[in-house]
Structures are given as structure tokens and as C-alpha cells.
């Protein structure tokens, strides 16, 4: 009831704002304070957008913010324009993901133009998340995560960059682009192992890198494991390393019982997450490749 009223009011405001913009285009108005007219129109679009928001009409709210952003651009206030585009993106996110991405991209263009790369990177992450959850286009999500990691690196905020890179690596591994995943994990691991705060998670990255090696080729995994142990001695003592050794042994003997036993033991202490489960399953499949298991799984 109340919402319908708000919506009507918002539509009225939009119409009014449009009138003002048109008026500012006429010759005489253009001479006398055309800009103030446009400013007023901006204000109105913003108010309309907020009312649409209250009425939960997300795409209309997004549209209103978009208009406001374009007017801000006309007025040369880049910063306001970018903020409005971000608002529009947030509103669209709930109704029309593709449009949300367009708006955020426009905002990113403005921010990169102004040299505000940290904020641009943040919005790249938002876009990547939309691709990840709403549109399920993992390739594009990866591209945006990579872009954002690049920007963060340029601004020396390495921990944010690493966060993005790890996402990229996880998806790359799921898409079976193991080489890429390995490179990222090794790089992040090498970066973090010297940091007093971060060295505790380095073993995790090496473990994941080794697992990716394992899926590609067993011998590579062995070599990689040796390399990691040399690079980062603390890795030898970790449960992850011991598990890897057991798995390698089991794989060599083509013993799926031993393999399962080792995984199970590891799982009983700390539960495997979904990524690890997927990867370990892929390795297990390669053991059973010539056995009867293959037929069953298909």
C-alpha cells in the first residue's frame, strides 16, 4: 500500500527530472544557469532512486541512479558519477545481474581514469562475484579476479592481491587448468613463507600446488614435493605433507584401499573442504582408471 504510493511519487519525480534536463537543452536556458537545472535533475533522480529502493523496485532504482550518473558526468563531476554508477550497480544486482555488471564497469572506467586503483579493484571483485554466483560464468569471474589482483599489486596491497589470486587458482584447478593453478599457489606460497604472520598458512598453498601436480603427473608431484620441502622446511612436519607422501605411495602401488585409508585418516582430524574433496576424487579416479570402478562411476 505504502510502497505503491512511494513508487508513484518516484515516477513523478523521474518525469519532473527529465523535464528539467530537456529544459536545460533549450537555447535560452542554456545561457542562464543550464547547469543548475541539471544539478536539480540529478538531485531528483537520486531521490526517485531512493524511493524505488524503498518500494523494492530494483531495476527502476538502478535506472534512476544510472541517469543521475550520466548527468553527473555531463557536469564534469567524475567522482559523483562513479558513486552513482556503483549505487546503480548495487540496485541492479538484485534484479538484472548483467546490467549491474555494465554499471560497475562504467564506474571502474572512471575510477581507473582518476587513478583510484584500489577502489577499481574492489569493484572488479564485486563483478567477479556476480559472475560467480548469479551468472555462473567462471571464466569471466577469473578474468575479473585477475584484473583486480593486478591493480592491487600495483598499489602494493599484496594481501588483497593474494586473496584474489587464490580464488583464481581454486577456479583454475576446477576447470582443469592445473598449470595456472600451480603457478599461483607456488608464487603465493613463496611470498607468504617469509612473513611472520603468514608463514603458518604457506603449507596450505604448497599442499594445494602439490595436489595439482599430482593430478597432472605423479612424478612431477614427487619432484615438487621435494622442492617445497627444501624451500620451506616447516612443510615437512605438516600433516599435509605426510598425507601427500602416503597418497603418492598408494598411487604408485595402484592401491586404492591405502589411498582411501590415508584420506580418511586426514579427514577424521580436520574435515576436507569441497575443493580438496573434488581434487582428491580426481586423483582417486586415476587410480581406479583401469579397474572396475570406472564403469561404476559413469
Amino acid at each position: 500500500m505504502d510502497n505503491a504510493g512511494k513508487e508513484r511519487e518516484a515516477v513523478q519525480l523521474m518525469a519532473e527530472a527529465e523535464k528539467r534536463v530537456k529544459a536545460s537543452h533549450s537555447f535560452l536556458r542554456g545561457l542562464f544557469g543550464g547547469n543548475t537545472r541539471i544539478e536539480e535533475a540529478c538531485e531528483m533522480y537520486n531521490r526517485a532512486a531512493n524511493m524505488f529502493k524503498m518500494a523494492k523496485n530494483w531495476s527502476a532504482a538502478g535506472n534512476a541512479f544510472c541517469q543521475a550518473a550520466k548527468l553527473h558526468m555531463q557536469l564534469q563531476s567524475k567522482h559523483d558519477s562513479a558513486t552513482s554508477f556503483v549505487d546503480a550497480g548495487n540496485a541492479y544486482k538484485k534484479a538484472d545481474p548483467q546490467e549491474a555488471i555494465n554499471c560497475l564497469n562504467a564506474a571502474i572506467d572512471i575510477y581507473t581514469d582518476m587513478g583510484r586503483f584500489t577502489i577499481a579493484a574492489k569493484h572488479h571483485i564485486t563483478i567477479a562475484e556476480i559472475y560467480e554466483t548469479e551468472l555462473v560464468d567462471i571464466e569471466k569471474a577469473i578474468a575479473h579476479y585477475e584484473q583486480s589482483a593486478d591493480y592491487y599489486k600495483g598499489e602494493e596491497s599484496n594481501s588483497s592481491a593474494n586473496k584474489c589470486l587464490l580464488k583464481v587458482a581454486a577456479y583454475a584447478a576446477q576447470l582443469e587448468q592445473y598449470q595456472k593453478a600451480i603457478e599461483i599457489y607456488e608464487q603465493v606460497g613463496a611470498n607468504t613463507m617469509d612473513n611472520p604472520l603468514l608463514k603458518y598458512s604457506a603449507k596450505d598453498y604448497f599442499f594445494k600446488a602439490a595436489l595439482c601436480h599430482f593430478i597432472v603427473d605423479e612424478l612431477n608431484a614427487k619432484l615438487a614435493l621435494e622442492k617445497y620441502e627444501e624451500m620451506f622446511p616447516a612443510f615437512t612436519d605438516s600433516r599435509e605433507c605426510k598425507l601427500l607422501k602416503k597418497l603418492l605411495e598408494a598411487h604408485e602401488e595402484q592401491n586404492s584401499e591405502a589411498y582411501t585409508e590415508a584420506v580418511k585418516e586426514f579427514d577424521s582430524i580436520s574435515r576436507l573442504d569441497q575443493w580438496l574433496t573434488t581434487m582428491l576424487l580426481r586423483i582417486k579416479k586415476s587410480i581406479q582408471g583401469d579397474g572396475e570402478g570406472d564403469g561404476d562411476l559413469k
Binding site: 584500489t118 598499489e155 596491497s157 599484496n158 594481501s159 588483497s160 586473496k163 612473513n195 604472520l197 603468514l198 603458518y200 598458512s201 596450505d204
Partner: peptide, 16 residues
């Protein structure tokens, strides 16, 4: 480990 990562991240943010 997670806490340490987050702490490091926040430290970086404070610096910036």
C-alpha cells in the same frame, strides 16, 4: 592461521 591472514590484511589496510 585464518586469523593471522586477516590481521595481516587489516594491517595493510591501516597502512594505506
Amino acid at each position: 592461521e585464518d586469523a593471522a591472514t586477516v590481521l595481516h590484511h587489516q594491517g595493510e589496510q591501516l597502512d594505506s
